[in-house]
Design a protein around this nucleic acid. Structure first.
Lengths: 140, 140
DNA sequence: CTAGATTGTTTGTAATGCCAACTACCTGCC
DNA sequence: GGCAGGTAGTTGGCATTACAAACAATCTAG
């Protein structure tokens, strides 16, 4: 087996793994009336307050898509908007307490769903896996 | 750090990695007028011919969602339907030559996009990563 | 103070996805 | 054989996601 083949095989596994995890997240989201995209939004806003454009850039989405997402989450009381006092154009988005508690519940469900699979690895292997995933994570 | 924390941290990395790879796939799909779901369909049908219901089950989607997906792909000449001669209710779905060639191109783009990141790992590490991902892959 | 850039929203369109209702077909049972 | 019930797919209706283009409000340079 050449080095190239080993990369191909790894990519195949990585993509399948991605779809697997995505499936888990989608299901958990659906159980809580949240789309995958909303899950991502909440993951980002967990410890941040961002303007609409930055949020869109983070997610690789159009600003207009963000507007709609925020609208619906705001209507459910999960997110809120605030005008930036020093620049009247800017709208900052952040999570409400209700949003935070929902995020916490979702977190628990994701943990509960994935832990069994990961428990099949030895603690040492888990540490290894964590290390090996680093090059794939977003820069900085 | 307790063993539980190590799992949490790993899950966090795994989810971020999932979104990262999903982002790559979504972008490549968009460049070729294909949604993430269509990519999944093509990945499954690459070496198979499946009935609509089985395809829907594989993807965790409703049959009616599959109908639409197949319709649009069929209209583009990428997929085709055939009646099962031994059971008149069943419709089997498979890829056309055009669909196969598109899949091949997409494959190449995915490889090109992910290889640089994976190349940052030693061949030994890549083999390790492949092994460690196994428990997360779909059963069977 | 005005021209141009930036920020966010609105509007229009297409795709995704669910549910419920429907058609077509098959299978069991009488 | 014939009908009741189950299975396979499609259709129609609805909400969400997503983009692009046009727009309003605000800021910044000159």
């Amino acid at each position: 087996m050449t080095a190239e083949d080993s990369v191909d095989e790894l990519i195949d596994a990585l993509v399948r793994c991605t779809f697997q995890v995505t499936g888990v997240l989608t299901r958990i989201g659906a159980d809580n009336d949240m789309s995958l995209t909303q899950l991502r939004v909440f993951g980002i806003l967990r410890d941040r307050r961002l303007r609409v454009t930055d949020l869109a850039a983070y997610l690789g989405l159009d600003k207009s898509t963000m507007s709609g997402l925020i609208d619906r989450a705001e209507r459910r009381g999960l997110l809120a908007r605030a005008k930036n006092p020093s620049d009247g154009r800017v709208v900052e988005v952040f999570m409400t307490p209700l949003g935070h508690s929902l995020t916490q519940r979702l977190d628990g469900e994701v943990r509960a769903a994935l832990t069994p699979d990961l428990a099949r690895l030895h603690p040492t292997q888990r540490t290894q896996l964590l290390t090996l995933l680093q090059p794939l994570l977003p820069a900085e």
